[in-house]
Design a protein around this nucleic acid. Structure first.
Length: 835
RNA sequence: GCCCGGGUGGCGGAAUGGCAGACGCAGGGGACUUAAAAUCCCCGGGAGCAAUCUCCGUGUGGGUUCGAGUCCCACCCCGGGCACCA
C-alpha cells in the first residue's frame, strides 16, 4: 500500500497551501461583506533583521483568533505592517556602514518571507511600513492640526539624554534613571527647546476611559491608572515676603496640615531658587548646590534612600492662613516635573520633611492628633502621616482631618490664595528626537516669524534617504543645507527647517486606524475607519502597558477631537502574552537559568530552522500548547518534537484509513449509535464544545489543544464504524485548523472535499451528544472518596441517595455509624455525613 | 515601602466550592530491529513488600463549609508594576 508509506512532509504541504490561500485572496478583508466585522491585530514588529520566537508566539495567538473568527462567520480584518523607523537602523549604519533605509527595507523583505512561511492569515494587501512617506505624511498633517489646537507645543525643557544614543529620551524611556535601551547607562541632563504633545489634556479622559475597557487585563488597567496618577488636594499660594503680589505656589494632598508648615522646598530646577538668592550672600551656595544636584545622576537623586540635602535661598514667604513667615529652601528631593515643583514642608506629618528638618534643625509643629492623641512636637520620633483631628490650627482645631482638607481648600479659595486642585503624575509627551531615521517634524523656524507650520500643500516633508549618518551616528539633517535651508512660508525670508524627527511611538499610535485605509492618498482616514475600528482584539507584550498603549489611546482621542474618527478607544480587547524564555548558562556562576530569548545573550532559536525541521504547523502548535498565553513560555526542543509527533500521528492515522473513510458519509446524528460509535461520536461533540469555549471565551489555547489530543486518543481506539470515524476525523481537522492550518487543509482535501477549511463554518455541538442517559457519581463519606455509583441521569435525589448508601465500597464506612446527612449534588457526587 | 499577580508530580501545565494532577514533555519497563532511530503497548505524586486496599499530599499556620488547590485571616517565598509624585 503506497499510501501508508507516504510520510508527513510539512515543507511541500505548507508551501502548497500558502500559495493557494494567496492565489484565492483568502485573507483579504472585504469592505462590502455582509458579515459582521472582526478586527484582530497583533502589535506590529520592528524590522530588526529576523523574526524571533517572541513574534512567532504573538502572531500564532493572533492567527488562531483571526482564523477562528473567520470560520465563525466574521469578516476578519487581520493586517500586518512594519514599525520601521528607529534607532537600531542607525546602529546598523554605524557598525556596518549600511544605510538605515536599505537595512530597514532588506529586513522587511526577510521578515515578510518568514511570516509567510508561518502561514499567518494576514491581509498582505494592507501592509504598511511607517518609514514610507505615504504613511508618515499623515502623521505630519496630524501634528500640524495638533499644533493649531494647542495640543502640540514647544517648550524649553531639561531633558534626559543618553550619551550612547546621542539623543533626548522621553520620561517614559527612562527606566530607573537609565536609558531604556542602555539599562546600565545613567541619563544626563540637557537643556533644549523641544516639541511636546499635550497628553495631560487627556489625563482625566484616559483615566475615566479605563473603566470601559472591560476586555483588558486588570493588571494593565491598574498600571495605567497608577501611571496617570490622579491626586486630589489643593493649590496653595504663599505670598513672598518683600515681593508684593508674588507667590510661591505648591500643590499638596494634605491642606489639612497647612498650619504645620515650617519651611518651603523648591526643586533644584525651580527658577525661583536662583532668583531668590540673587544678590544675597546665599547666591554662591545656592548656585553651587543647584549645579551639583543637576549634574547628579537622576536615578540616585530619585532614590528614596538618598540623603536629603538642601540650601537656604535667602527668601521667605508667608503662610496664607497662619500668617507665619517661613524660610524657602532649595532641596534635592522635590520633583520639578510634578505639581508646581515646589512643596510646603510639614515635618510633623510628612516623613521626608521630617528627615530634612532633623538634619537642618528646622522646627516641627504638630497639627494633626491621631485618634489616641498625645502627639507633641518635642517628642515626635517620626512623622505622623495618618488621619486624625486638626490641632493648633486656629478655627479648624478639632476638625477631622478629612473634613479639614475640604475646609482649608475652600478657605484658600475664598481668600484668593489657591483652592481645591487635582494633579496628575502623567506628563506631556516630549516627541523631538535628534535623530535621522524618523518622521521629520513639519515646522520651519524663521528669525522674523518664529515657528511657522509647513503649509499643507507642501506635505510631506520627505526624509532624504540619500544622506549618510555623521560621525558617532549623529543626524545628517542639521548639516544638510538641501534639507534645512528653506524660505519662510510666511515672509519669504531665509528660514530653517526643524531638523528633529519624531519619537517612533508616534507612528505606532495610529497605525491600527491606518490599516483601514492604507492606500488612501487624499486623507488619513475615511469611512472605512468607522466600519472596522476599534480593534476587537489586540495582542502583544505587557511591556507596552504604559507607553504604547497610553500613547495610542491619547492619539485616538486626539484624532477624534480633530474630527478624523468617531471612536474614543482604539483597542476594545487586549491580550498580553508572556515572554519566550530559553535556558542560559551563566558563565560566571555556572548555573543554568531561564531567561528571555535574546540575540545579545546568544540563546535564540531561529524560527526558520524549526520550520525546516518540523514545519510551521508544529512550531505554532508548540507555542500555543506549552503554556497559557499570559504565562512566560519555556522553550523546549522535546516539546516541539511532541507537537510534531501529534500532527504526524493524525497524518498517518488518517491516511491509513483513507479508503475506508472516503467510502462512508460522515455520521450526522447520535440516533442509533451505541458502544464505540457512541463513545467516539460523543467525544467529537465534547471536543467541539471544549475547543470553542476555550478559544472564544477563555483564550486558553493550551486546553483547547489538550481537548484535541483527547479526541485523537479516542480515535486511536479501534471499533467505531467508518461513518462515525469519518465524522470524528473531520471534526478534528476543522477544530485543529486554526492551530495547524496547512496539514488540516491537506487532509481535508484528501478526504475528498472541494472547499477549503479557511472558509469552513465552525461546527456547533449537538446537545444530545453532550448528555447521557447514565451518569457516574462519586460517593464520599465525610468528604473522602469511597466509591462510585452509576445512576440514570433522570434519577431522583432519593434514588441517588439509596444507590449511594447501598454501594458495597461505601458500606464498610457506614458500619457502626449513624448517617447524619446526605448531600446530593446532581450529576456530580453524593457526600454521606456520618458520626 | 506601596499596589498587583503567582506558589499544584522530575518539568510545562489541568481542575463553574464537588473524583487533585486532564493533556503533554522527560523517565522506567516491554514489543519490533543484527543494532539504533522512528513507531507501538504498559507504568508512572509519596508511603505502606503487593494490591482493585489504606494513609498522607496543591508554600506554612489557622478558619468557614457536608466538602477547600479554589473562599476568609495571618505569615513565608517568587515574579511584575510604582517608588522622595507632596
Amino acid at each position: 500500500m503506497e499510501r501508508e508509506r507516504e510520510r508527513y512532509e510539512p515543507a511541500s504541504i505548507e508551501a502548497k497551501w500558502q500559495q493557494t490561500w494567496e492565489r484565492e485572496r483568502a485573507f483579504h478583508a472585504r469592505e462590502d461583506s455582509p458579515r459582521p466585522k472582526f478586527y484582530c491585530l497583533e502589535m506590529f514588529p520592528y524590522p530588526s533583521g529576523r523574526i524571533h520566537m517572541g513574534h512567532v508566539r504573538n502572531y500564532a495567538i493572533g492567527d488562531v483568533i483571526a482564523r477562528t473568527k473567520r470560520m465563525r462567520g466574521f469578516e476578519v480584518l487581520h493586517p500586518i505592517g512594519w514599525d520601521a523607523f528607529g534607532l537600531p537602523a542607525e546602529n546598523a549604519a554605524i557598525s556596518r556602514g549600511v544605510h538605515p533605509a536599505r537595512w530597514t527595507r532588506d529586513n522587511i523583505d526577510t521578515m515578510r518571507a518568514q511570516l509567510k512561511r508561518l502561514g499567518f492569515s494576514y491581509d498582505w494587501e494592507r501592509e504598511i511600513a511607517t518609514c514610507d512617506a505615504s504613511y508618515y505624511r499623515w502623521e505630519q498633517q496630524v501634528f500640524l492640526e495638533l499644533l493649531e489646537r494647542g495640543l502640540a507645543y514647544r517648550k524649553r525643557a531639561i531633558l534626559n539624554s543618553c550619551t550612547a544614543c546621542g539623543t533626548v529620551l522621553a520620561n517614559e524611556q527612562v527606566v530607573n534613571g537609565m536609558c531604556w535601551r542602555h539599562t546600565d547607562l545613567p541619563v544626563t541632563p540637557l537643556e533644549r527647546d523641544v516639541w511636546f504633545l499635550k497628553t495631560t489634556a487627556y489625563a482625566e479622559a484616559l483615566l475615566a476611559g479605563l473603566d470601559g475597557l472591560t476586555e483588558w487585563p486588570d493588571a494593565v488597567r491598574t498600571m495605567q491608572r497608577e501611571w496617570i496618577g490622579k491626586s486630589h488636594g489643593a493649590r496653595v499660594k504663599f505670598p513672598h515676603v518683600g515681593r508684593a503680589g508674588e507667590f510661591v505656589e505648591v500643590f499638596t494632598t494634605r491642606p489639612d496640615t497647612l498650619y504645620g508648615v515650617t519651611f518651603m522646598s523648591l526643586a533644584a530646577e525651580h527658577p525661583l531658587a536662583r532668583e531668590l538668592s540673587a544678590g544675597t550672600e546665599q547666591e554662591a551656595p545656592v548656585r553651587e548646590f543647584v549645579e551639583r544636584i543637576l549634574r547628579e545622576d537622576k536615578h540616585l537623586r530619585g532614590a528614596e534612600v538618598t540623603t536629603k540635602e538642601g540650601v537656604f535661598t535667602g527668601g521667605y514667604c508667608e503662610n496664607p492662613l497662619a500668617g507665619e513667615r517661613v524660610p524657602i529652601y532649595v532641596t534635592n528631593f522635590v520633583v520639578y516635573e510634578y505639581g508646581t515643583g515646589a512643596v510646603m514642608a510639614v515635618p510633623a506629618h510628612d516623613q521626608r520633611d521630617f528627615d530634612f528638618a532633623r538634619v537642618y534643625g528646622l522646627p516641627v509643629q504638630v497639627v494633626i492628633q491621631p485618634p489616641e492623641g498625645g502627639l507633641t512636637s518635642a517628642s515626635l520620633e517620626a512623622a505622623y502621616e495618618g488621619p486624625g483631628t486638626m490641632f493648633a490650627s486656629a478655627e479648624f482645631t478639632g476638625t477631622p482631618s478629612e473634613d479639614g482638607k475640604r475646609g482649608v481648600a475652600a478657605k484658600l479659595a475664598s481668600l484668593g490664595r489657591g483652592g481645591p486642585e487635582i494633579t496628575y503624575r502623567l506628563r506631556d509627551w516630549g516627541i523631538s528626537r535628534q535623530r535621522y531615521w524618523g518622521t521629520p517634524i513639519p515646522v520651519i523656524h524663521c528669525t522674523a516669524c518664529g515657528i511657522v507650520p509647513v503649509p499643507a500643500k507642501d506635505l510631506p516633508v520627505v526624509l532624504p534617504e540619500d544622506l549618510d549618518l555623521l560621525e558617532n551616528g549623529r543626524s545628517p539633517l542639521p548639516a544638510s543645507e538641501r534639507f534645512y535651508a528653506v524660505s519662510c512660508p510666511r515672509c519669504g525670508g531665509a528660514a530653517r527647517r526643524d531638523t528633529d524627527t519624531m519619537d517612533t511611538f508616534v507612528e505606532s499610535s495610529w497605525y491600527q486606524l491606518r490599516f483601514t485605509s492604507p492606500r488612501l492618498e487624499t486623507a488619513i482616514l475615511d469611512e472605512r475607519a468607522a466600519k472596522w475600528a476599534p480593534v476587537d482584539q489586540y495582542i502583544g507584550g505587557i511591556e507596552h502597558a504604559c507607553l504604547h498603549l497610553i500613547y495610542a489611546r491619547f492619539f485616538t482621542r486626539a484624532l477624534h477631537d480633530l474630527g478624523h474618527v468617531s471612536l474614543d478607544e482604539p483597542f476594545a480587547g487586549l491580550l498580553t502574552q508572556g515572554m519566550v524564555l530559553n535556558k542560559h548558562l551563566d558563565k560566571t556562576t555556572g548555573e543554568e537559568r531561564w531567561i528571555k530569548m535574546s540575540k545579545s545573550l546568544g540563546n535564540v532559536v531561529d524560527p526558520d530552522e524549526m520550520i525546516r525541521g518540523v514545519g510551521a504547523d508544529a512550531v505554532r502548535m508548540f507555542m500555543l500548547f506549552t503554556a497559557p498565553p499570559e504565562n512566560d513560555l519555556k522553550w523546549s526542543d522535546e516539546g516541539i518534537r511532541g507537537a510534531s509527533r501529534f500532527l504526524t500521528r493524525i497524518w498517518r492515522g488518517l491516511l491509513v484509513e483513507l479508503d475506508m473513510l472516503t467510502s462512508a458519509a460522515a455520521a450526522t446524528s447520535i440516533e442509533g449509535l451505541e458502544g464505540a460509535d457512541l463513545e467516539l461520536y460523543r467525544k467529537a461533540h465534547w471536543a467541539i464544545e471544549r475547543v470553542t469555549h476555550d478559544i472564544d471565551a477563555r483564550y486558553q489555547f493550551n486546553t483547547a489543544i489538550a481537548a484535541l489530543h483527547e479526541l485523537a486518543n479516542v480515535l486511536d481506539e479501534p471499533g467505531a464504524a467508518p461513518a462515525v470515524r469519518r465524522f470524528a476525523y473531520e471534526t478534528l481537522l476543522v477544530l485543529l485548523h486554526p492551530f495547524a492550518p496547512h496539514v488540516t487543509e491537506e487532509l481535508w482535501e484528501r478526504l475528498g472535499h472541494a472547499d477549503h477549511l479557511v472558509f469552513h463554518p465552525w461546527p456547533s455541538a449537538d446537545p444530545a451528544a453532550l448528555t447521557s442517559d447514565e451518569v457516574q457519581l462519586v460517593v464520599q463519606v465525610n468528604g473522602k472518596l469511597r466509591g462510585r455509583v452509576t445512576v440514570a441521569t433522570s434519577a431522583t435525589e432519593d434514588e441517588v441517595r439509596a444507590a449511594a448508601l447501598a454501594d458495597a465500597k461505601v458500606q464498610p464506612f457506614l458500619e457502626g455509624k449513624s448517617v447524619v446527612k446526605v448531600v446530593v449534588v446532581p450529576g456530580r457526587l453524593v457526600n454521606v455525613v456520618v458520626r
